[in-house]
Design a protein around this nucleic acid. Structure first.
Lengths: 202, 202
DNA sequence: TATTTTTTATTGACTGATCAATCAATAAAG
DNA sequence: CTTTATTGATTGATCAGTCAATAAAAAATA
C-alpha cells in the first residue's frame, strides 16, 4: 500500500483553484499567485509542479474536457434508444455539474485563449469533434446521414450559443429552458422526416 | 469651410487599429503601443485622445455595435414582407462585412471581457436586446407571440453559436452554410404553424 | 500684413505596478 | 543521505499611464 506523494493532490487542487479563479475573474487573466493562494500553496510550488502557466491552463482545460467526456459516457451508457442517446448528450451539457457560471466562464475564456495558443485550440477541436460524434451516435439511426450531420451541427451551435449567452446573464443559469430550446430543435428535425434512415443497416 | 481637426481622424484610425490588432492577436491582450503603432502614432497620443485603454476598448465596441446596427437598419428598410425582415436580420450577421475573422475575434474577445467590465457588459446587453427586437419585427407577424419569442431566442443562440464555432476554424468563414443552417431553423419554426398570428392586429 | 499669443497635435523618456519565472535555502520523508 | 516538498526573496520583462518639451496651426492683436 504505497502512500501517495503530494504531487497528484497538489495538481488537482491547483486545477480546481484555476477553475474557480477563472470563474470569479471571468477571464484567463488570473495570476499564478492568485491561483496558488486559492489552493493554499505558494506560487513557487505551482511553478514547481506545472513548469509554466500555459501548462497549468492546458491541464485545467484537459480536466474540464475529461469530466465532460466522463459524464457523457455515463449518460450514453444509460440510454437505450437512439433518441435517448441524443437527449442524453444534450442533457449532459446542461447538467448541474457542467452548466455552472464558473465552468461556463472557463470554457468561454478558453475559446478566446485558443486563438493564441495552438495547444488549447487543439483541445477545443477535440471537444468539437467529440460532441459531434456523440450526437451522431444517436442521430445516425434516426436520420439519413446528411440530415443527421446537419442536425448535429445545429445542435452543437445551439449549445455553444446558449453557453455564450448564458455568460452575459447574471443569477442562476436556467438549464431547463436551454434544454427545452435544443430539444425543440431536435424534435422539429425528427418530425420533418419520420422515415427510417438510409437503407436498413445491421 | 472649416478644416477639421485631427481628433476625429485619429480616433477613427485608433479604433480601426484596435479591431485589426484584436483580430490578429485574437484577444484583448493588445498593448496600447501595438495599437498606436498600427495607427501610425505614438502610444502617448492614444492616451491623449482616449484617456485610458478601457475607453478605447469601449469606443471600439460601440463602433462595432453601431456598424452592425446601421447595416441592419438598411437591410430592414429594403425588406417588404415580415418573412424578408427576418431573413434580412439573419443575413446581415453573416454578411461579408460582419462575418470576418477580425470582427468575429473582436466580438468573442468582448464577450469575455464583459465578465469583468460593467460598461462592456452593458453594451453587449444592448446588442442582445436589439437583435431580439429586430428579429421580432418580422417574427411577430408570422407567429403567435410566445412562439415568435422562442424562435427569436433560438435564432439568436444559433447566430452566437456559429460565431464562436467559426472562431475555432481557420481559413475563410463559410457564411453560406451558416445562413442555411439558421434559415433552416426558421423555416421549420414557420412550417409547424402556418396559421396566422394571434388576433389580427391593425 | 506682420507679430504675438493661444490652442492643438505630437512625442520620447520616465515611473510605478504587476507578474511569470528562477533559485537558493530549509525542512521533512524515505 | 538522497529524494520530495515547500517557500521567501529576487530578477527581468512588460505595460499603462504621466509629463514636460516641442512643433505647428489658428486666433488675436498691433
Amino acid at each position: 500500500m504505497p502512500k501517495v506523494g503530494m504531487e497528484p493532490l497538489r495538481r488537482r487542487a491547483l486545477i480546481d483553484a484555476t477553475i474557480s479563479a477563472i470563474g470569479d475573474r471571468g477571464s484567463l487573466d488570473v495570476t499564478m499567485s492568485e491561483i496558488a493562494s486559492r489552493a493554499g500553496v505558494s506560487s513557487a510550488l505551482a511553478h514547481h509542479y506545472f513548469g509554466a502557466k500555459d501548462e497549468l491552463l492546458q491541464a485545467t482545460m484537459r480536466h474540464l474536457l475529461a469530466e465532460l467526456n466522463a459524464d457523457t459516457r455515463q449518460a450514453l451508457a444509460a440510454a437505450s434508444t437512439p433518441r435517448q442517446r441524443v437527449s442524453a448528450v444534450i442533457a449532459v451539457n446542461f447538467s448541474d455539474k457542467q452548466f455552472q457560471p464558473e465552468t461556463i466562464a472557463a470554457w468561454l475564456a478558453f475559446y478566446v485563449e485558443a486563438q493564441k495558443s495552438t495547444a488549447l485550440r487543439r483541445l477545443l477541436r477535440i471537444y468539437a469533434r467529440r460532441l459531434h460524434s456523440n450526437l451522431m451516435s444517436g442521430l445516425s439511426d434516426l436520420l439519413p446521414l446528411t440530415e443527421a450531420d446537419s442536425a448535429a451541427e445545429g445542435i452543437a451551435a445551439l449549445i455553444d450559443g446558449l453557453y455564450i449567452r448564458r455568460a452575459l446573464k447574471q443569477g442562476e443559469p436556467d438549464a431547463h429552458s436551454a434544454i427545452t430550446l435544443v430539444t425543440d430543435y431536435l424534435e422539429m428535425k425528427l418530425a420533418l422526416r419520420p422515415a427510417a434512415p438510409t437503407p436498413r443497416s445491421r
